[in-house]
Design a protein around this nucleic acid. Structure first.
Lengths: 326, 326
DNA sequence: CATATTTATGCTCGACTAGAGCATTATACG
DNA sequence: CGTATAATGCTCTAGTCGAGCATAAATATG
């Protein structure tokens, strides 16, 4: 934006140029595991997301991202969508000094190949190693047994009005009592834990340094604010699979209905009713027969199906709906 | 992002610092008109959105935005949400030169006061003066009579495969044939018109300069890529009112159910079934009685209601659902 | 003042959707 | 051949959604 007269003042004020990074949450999935591609500088450092500075030879932001990812991970991205721009001046240790802003424009990318990312410093990780409370496939995650009492303590720490606000927010995001679990509120949950000081990222710059590890929520930390970005991406993807057939960006060319269901379950973190899931997929016309079957599944052979690209034109909002959890 | 070892190369490459602007789509609404706050440098220039450069004294992006808006429009923003970051190097005339990137981080803000924005250079405008094809409240907008044949011509201009792709995309976004109108695809429609060369913004830098005005779609242009940003904001808001009670950010403290309905219609651009709308609002518990009635509506006096803030805690996804249009 | 007009509001009916579970079929394996 | 494991077909029920009829309570009008 190079215009002028609309802003009479401050044009000439001290203005440290911000640095702009492009970062990518690259996701893949098997029927069992939702994965994210992480990179690590040294074995001691926490995992991070592939990222790199925006450069003037990048024609578009998205192309800059693709360039960086190709260089760092040898991956050619398919589906890419912008997530959010993070840029609070105090978002990292280094920037609290008051230098310029460090912006990070985060993208969500979906890929099919889940091969072990040949490079030594890059690896596919299960989402839930970073956010273990998000996986309800085996029932209520145990991480919540730790989180719940600590959130209660945090809520009680304030005065009455603050306390009630906090309790309502806890109920709204984690649904411990009546509410029930809402699979999409991933970011809200992470931010609540952050504010409550239950993730190490929140304590990095505090004085005195890091209290005992016992007080933290389970789950691996990530570099900078990358765990927040990951939470943003998971929430977005969980929402999106319900009204757009993005799930197929993660599936192989042909698959069984159970594989599709398991993959959806892995992403959304909840279990689904098998027959109803099939009915939904069939009536929506999301898939078509390949004519082949596979016996590798155990019991009765399963038909192999493929995604029907035509639904993109036929239906305004095809996607895989999910049930509520209580 | 100030990390290091994850990106071995290109750290020292030519790297013109990008400029970062914060821009705001500030919306208000009456039961009849959805409005956006625009600013104009000179009477000759097209309308633009309030915006200003990110500065190092801004602690967070959102606070920077609020500061700029307060300065340019005297408004104190309430609800604010980040929309998208625009930043293709060729997004404006000035930047095509290959200087640095001009990023624009766009925000959506909702305000109640729709007073005439005291300042001479700022004004509230009806959304649909910029995007007239988005208003279906009085039936199919006439703008489409112009747009449809021109899009057909554009589709036919390519070879067979390209042509089919274009026709499918037209159908998907505008739903001329079977599909029907989808109120949320505002951005997709604008971008299609842009690609088809039907909006003047698309022709600004072309050689030879601007062909006859007769070839364009109706609707006022805006500065830079601001009409694209507006389209993004409208699409986002139309989606959001369906699952979050953001509509109340635009309503006065108390209102009648018909006023609420009319406002939703103004935003979504479609007409709703009165009795069903009321049923929905009632069963969702979105409002409560104030005890007062108003006779200003014409016929039988209407109850005045107010928003019930409690629903934010009670219901996971309250919002105003809309019907399909065929 | 009676009547038309306008808006608010209550209620019902039918089509469709979603959640749950029973029943049957087709393989592999011992 | 019986059993385990999936895949698949089908039904029942409650709830939601779209549409429209009917009634109530004001104002406008002749």
């Amino acid at each position: 934006m190079a215009s002028s007269s609309r802003r009479p003042k401050t044009r000439a004020q001290p203005h440290v140029a911000p640095t702009v990074d492009l970062s990518a949450v690259i996701m893949a999935a098997t029927p069992d595991e939702p994965r994210v591609l992480t990179v690590r500088a040294t074995p001691q450092q926490p995992d991070g997301l592939p990222s790199g500075p925006l450069q003037s030879e990048h024609r578009t932001l998205e192309m800059g991202l693709r360039t960086w990812v190709a260089e760092q991970t040898q991956l050619t991205l398919g589906y890419v969508e912008q997530l959010y721009t993070f840029g609070d001046r105090d978002r990292t240790e280094a920037d609290a000094s008051g230098a310029g802003h460090a912006l990070s424009i985060a993208y969500l990318a979906l890929v099919r190949e889940a091969r072990p990312a040949g490079l030594a410093h890059a690896a596919w990780r299960n989402w839930y190693s970073y956010l273990p409370w998000e996986d309800w496939r085996e029932g209520r995650p145990k991480a919540l047994d730790v989180i719940k009492p600590r959130l209660k303590v945090w809520a009680r720490a304030g005065g009455k009005p603050l306390r009630q606000l906090r309790e309502e927010r806890i109920e709204l995001t984690f649904g411990f009592e009546a509410e029930g679990w809402s699979d999409e509120r991933v970011l809200e949950r992470y931010e609540l834990l952050f504010e409550a000081g239950l993730v190490p990222e929140a304590l990095r710059d505090t004085q005195p340094p890091v209290p005992s590890k016992v007080r933290l929520a389970p789950g691996l930390p990530m570099a900078l604010d990358h765990r927040r970005i990951l939470a943003t991406a998971i929430g977005r993807l969980r929402g999106k699979i319900k009204y757009r057939p993005v799930i197929f960006e993660l599936m192989p060319a042909s698959f069984t209905l159970l594989e599709l269901q398991k993959t959806v379950e892995a992403l959304s973190g909840v279990r689904l009713h098998k027959q109803n899931f099939r009915r939904l997929v069939e009536v929506q016309g999301l898939v078509e027969e390949t004519g082949e079957v596979t016996t590798e599944t155990g019991g009765r052979p399963a038909r192999l199906v493929r995604f029907r690209r035509e639904v993109l034109i036929e239906r305004p909002a095809p996607g895989v709906r999910l049930p509520r959890l209580r």
